[in-house]
Write a protein that binds this DNA or RNA. Structure first.
Length: 675
DNA sequence: AATCGAGTAAACAACG
DNA sequence: TCGTTGTTTACTCGAT
C-alpha cells in the first residue's frame, strides 16, 4: 500500500495535466461563409406576398428582440455545447459550435411565426415537415459525428502509447474533415431553409445577428413540440390574410460568430451540459411574445435609453424606442457593421470567459479538486488547497461509496461550479495529505467556514485539512478534563469526521504515532490506564517552524487590526445562522464547533505570535477556551500514585453529550468499553 | 540539494 | 492467545 502512494500521486498529477490540457481550436468558418454565399436558392416558395405592412413591422420587431435575447442567452450560458470526454487529447480534431449546432428554427422563432399568423395552415404544415426532416438529419449526423469522435480518440490514445503517428489516425482525421464538410453542407441547407423563411417574411433577421446560426440544437423545437404548437395554432387559426414584401437581404455571413468560447473548461463546468453529447438546455416556454413583455426586457432598451452600441438615444417610452430602432438602426450597412463589431466584442468576451474558466479549472485542479466528472465532492472553498484524501481511502473503497449527503450547512462550493464539478461522489482518488492549512497558515480561514465545515466534516467523507496533531489536541482540549484515553480520542475522530469512519487501522496508527512522536502529547497514567493530555507550551513550540509561505498573508493577518475581533464576530454570526450556541468556555454545552474554531484560531494566533518574535505565549490573541485551559506541562509521565488524584475521576466518563456509544463503524468497531 | 514536517506503514514490546 | 496500547523506525512526499 505504501509503495503505491507515490505512484498514485504521480498519476494524479498526470491526470491533472490531461484534464487541463488540450485547448479547443475551432475551425475557421470561412468555408461556411463561402458555402452560404453560394446557396441562396429558396427552398420553399410560399405565397405569402400580401403581408400587411403593420404586421411586417411587428414581425420585424419581434424577430429582432428574439434574436437579441437568444444572443444574450447564449452569452450567459457560456454557449452550451455537447459535453465530451474531459480528457480530450490535444490532437483531437476541433469542431466549431456552429458545426455542432446546426440551424434549427427555435421555439421562439416558430412561436413568432405562428403568432404572426403569416402563413396558412397548409404553409405551416410544409414548414413543419421541413423542419422535422432537417432535425432528423441533424440527429443522424450528430450521432455519426459522435462515433467519429470516439473513434478518433481511441486512435489518439493508441497513438500516444505507441508514440507514433499511425496511418489510421490520419484516415480518421480525414474522415473527420469529410464529416465536417458534410455538416457544413447540412448547415448551408438549413440556412437556405431559414433564408426562405426570411424571404417569406416569417423571420426577419437582423444582419450580423449570430443567434440563429448559433442556436443550439436543443433549442430547436422537437417534432413533438412542433406538432403541439401546430395543433394549437391551427385550432385557433383565423383567416387573417398576410401580405406584403419583406426584407430579403438576409445577411448570413456572420454565421461563424461561433467563437471558441465553448472551451473544454466551460464544458466541464457547465452544469447543464449533459454527457451524451446532446444539450440539456431547457426548452424555452412557448410564452406569448407580446410587445408589452418585450418592452420590459428588450436588451436594446433600458432606462429610457437606446442601448444600441454607440447610440444612447433617449426614448421616452417603448413605442418611441421602437420607432427609433426602426429608423435609426434599420437594416443598412451601418447597422450591419455595428452588429459585426458587437459580435467581435461578444466573441472576445466569450474567449475571455473561456480562458478565465480554464484558469479557474486549472487552479482547482492544482488545488487537488478533482473536477473530472462525475468525481469530486462538495467541499469547502477554503479547503481546496489542502483537502486531499489518502490513498488508503481510495484503495479501501474503490467502488462508488454511499456518500453521506452534505448538510444544508455544508460549505459553499466554488461559484460557477455546477454539479459536474461538485458532486457528492468519489473524493477518494486523491493522494495523501502533506500539508494542512491549519498548520501552514497560508490559507485564510474564514470563521464561517470553520463553523460550517465542522458540520460538513461530520457528514461528508472529506478528509479534514488538519494535521493529526491538531486534531488530537483538539479532541483532548474539548474534553472537560482536557485529557482523553486513546480510545476516546478515536471516538472523537469518528464522531467528528466522517472521513475517519473508515480505514481505521491507518488513521488510528497515525494517531498513536503522533501521540508518541510529539512532545506536546503527554501520557498520564492513572489507575485504569492512561490518558493523554496536551502540553500547550510544547504545542506552541512546534509551530513556529511550520510558518511558511505567503508572507504577505501573514502580514495581512497581522495588519488587519484586531484580527480576532472580526473573526469572532463572523464566527458568532455564522453560528447564529446555524443555530449553534455560542461558545465562551470549553465547558459550555455542545462546544465542539466553537472549540474547534477557537483551536484553529489559536493556531492562527500562534502563527502571528511567532512571527512577532518577541511575543510571549500570553498574547491577547488567546481564545477564551484556551484561557481556561489548564495547561499540562509535564515532561515525565505522572507517577501512577500521583495520578490517582482528581484526574482519575474522569478517565471513564464520557463527557460528550452526544457520544456515540452505539456507533459501529465499518472497518473497525470502536471499542467503547475498553476501560 | 538539503532540510524539515507530516503521513503512512510496519515491527516490536508491554499489558490486560 | 489475542487485541490494544505505546514506541520506534523507515520511507515518501511536499514545502521551503
Amino acid at each position: 500500500m505504501m509503495q503505491e502512494s507515490g505512484t498514485e500521486t504521480k498519476s494524479n498529477g498526470s491526470a491533472i495535466q490531461n484534464g487541463s490540457s488540450g485547448g479547443n481550436h475551432l475551425l475557421e468558418c470561412g468555408s461556411l461563409r463561402e458555402g452560404r454565399s453560394n446557396g441562396e436558392a429558396p427552398a420553399v416558395d410560399v405565397g405569402a406576398a400580401d403581408l400587411a405592412h403593420v404586421q411586417q413591422q411587428q414581425a420585424l420587431q419581434v424577430a429582432r428582440q428574439l434574436l437579441l435575447q437568444q444572443q444574450q442567452q447564449q452569452q450567459v450560458s457560456g454557449l452550451k455545447s455537447p459535453k465530451r470526454n474531459d480528457k480530450q487529447p490535444a490532437l483531437q480534431v476541433p469542431v466549431s459550435v456552429a458545426m455542432m449546432t446546426p440551424q434549427v428554427i427555435t421555439p421562439q422563432q416558430m412561436q413568432q411565426i405562428l403568432q404572426q399568423q403569416v402563413l396558412s395552415p397548409q404553409q405551416l404544415q410544409v414548414l413543419l415537415q421541413q423542419q422535422q426532416a432537417l432535425m432528423l438529419q441533424q440527429q443522424q449526423l450528430q450521432e455519426f459525428y459522435k462515433k467519429q469522435q470516439e473513434q478518433l480518440q481511441l486512435q489518439l490514445l493508441q497513438q500516444q502509447h505507441a508514440g507514433k503517428q499511425p496511418k489510421e489516425q490520419q484516415q480518421v482525421a480525414t474522415q473527420q474533415l469529410a464529416f465536417q464538410q458534410q455538416l457544413l453542407q447540412m448547415q448551408q441547407l438549413q440556412q437556405q431553409h431559414l433564408l426562405s423563411l426570411q424571404r417569406q417574411g416569417l423571420l426577419t433577421i437582423q444582419p450580423g445577428q449570430p443567434a440563429l446560426p448559433l442556436q443550439p440544437l436543443a433549442q430547436g423545437m422537437i417534432p413533438a413540440e412542433l406538432q403541439q404548437l401546430w395543433k394549437e395554432v391551427t385550432s385557433a387559426h383565423t383567416a387573417e390574410e398576410t401580405t406584403g414584401n419583406n426584407h430579403s437581404s438576409l445577411d448570413l455571413t456572420t454565421t461563424c460568430v461561433s467563437s471558441s468560447a465553448p472551451s473544454k473548461t466551460s464544458l466541464i463546468m457547465n452544469p447543464h451540459a449533459s454527457t451524451n453529447g446532446q444539450l440539456s438546455v431547457h426548452t424555452p416556454k412557448r410564452e406569448s411574445l407580446s410587445h408589452e413583455e418585450h418592452s420590459h426586457s428588450h436588451p436594446l432598451y433600458g432606462h429610457g435609453v437606446c442601448k444600441w452600441p454607440g447610440c444612447e438615444a433617449v426614448c421616452e417610452d417603448f413605442q418611441s424606442f421602437l420607432k427609433h430602432l426602426n429608423s435609426e438602426h434599420a437594416l443598412d450597412d451601418r447597422s450591419t457593421a455595428q452588429c459585426r463589431v458587437q459580435m467581435q466584442v461578444v466573441q472576445q468576451l466569450e474567449l475571455q470567459l473561456a480562458k478565465d474558466k480554464e484558469r479557474l479549472q486549472a487552479m482547482m485542479t492544482h488545488l487537488h479538486v478533482k473536477s473530472t466528472e462525475p468525481k469530486a465532492a462538495p467541499q469547502p472553498l477554503n479547503l481546496v488547497s489542502s483537502v486531499t484524501l489518502s490513498k488508503s481511502a481510495s484503495e479501501a473503497s474503490p467502488q462508488s461509496l454511499p456518500h453521506t449527503p452534505t448538510t444544508p450547512t455544508a460549505p459553499i462550493t466554488p461559484v460557477t461550479q455546477g454539479p459536474s464539478v461538485i458532486t457528492t461522489t468519489s473524493m477518494h482518488t486523491v493522494g495523501p495529505i502533506r500539508r494542512r492549512y491549519s498548520d501552514k497558515y497560508n490559507v485564510p480561514i474564514s470563521s464561517a467556514d470553520i463553523a460550517q465545515n465542522q458540520e460538513f466534516y461530520k457528514n461528508a467523507e472529506v478528509r479534514p485539512p488538519f494535521t493529526y496533531a491538531s486534531l488530537i489536541r483538539q479532541a483532548i482540549l474539548e474534553s472537560p478534563e482536557k485529557q482523553l484515553t486513546l480510545n476516546e480520542i478515536y471516538n472523537w475522530f469518528t464522531r467528528m469526521f466522517a472521513y475517519f469512519r473508515r480505514n481505521a487501522a491507518t488513521w488510528k496508527n497515525a494517531v498513536r504515532h503522533n501521540l508518541s512522536l510529539h512532545k506536546c502529547f503527554v501520557r498520564v497514567e492513572n489507575v485504569k490506564g492512561a490518558v493523554w493530555t496536551v502540553d500547550e507550551v510544547e504545542f506552541q513550540k512546534r509551530r513556529p517552524q511550520k510558518i511558511s509561505g505567503n508572507p504577505s498573508l501573514i502580514k495581512n493577518m497581522q495588519s488587519s487590526h484586531a484580527y480576532c475581533t472580526p473573526l469572532n464576530a463572523a464566527l458568532q454570526a455564522s453560528m447564529a445562522e446555524n443555530s449553534i450556541p455560542l461558545y465562551t468556555t470549553a465547558s459550555m454545552g455542545n462546544p465542539t464547533l466553537g472549540n474547534l474554531a477557537s483551536a484553529i484560531r489559536e493556531e492562527l494566533n500562534g502563527a502571528m505570535e511567532h512571527t512577532n518574535s518577541n511575543e510571549s505565549d500570553s498574547s491577547p490573541g488567546r481564545s477564551p477556551m484556551q484561557a481556561v485551559h489548564p495547561v499540562h506541562v509535564k515532561e515525565e509521565p505522572l507517577d501512577p500514585e500521583e495520578a490517582e488524584g482528581p484526574l482519575s475521576l474522569v478517565t471513564t466518563a464520557n463527557h460528550s453529550p452526544d457520544f456515540d456509544h452505539d456507533r459501529d463503524y465499518e472497518d473497525e468497531p470502536v471499542n467503547e468499553d475498553m476501560e
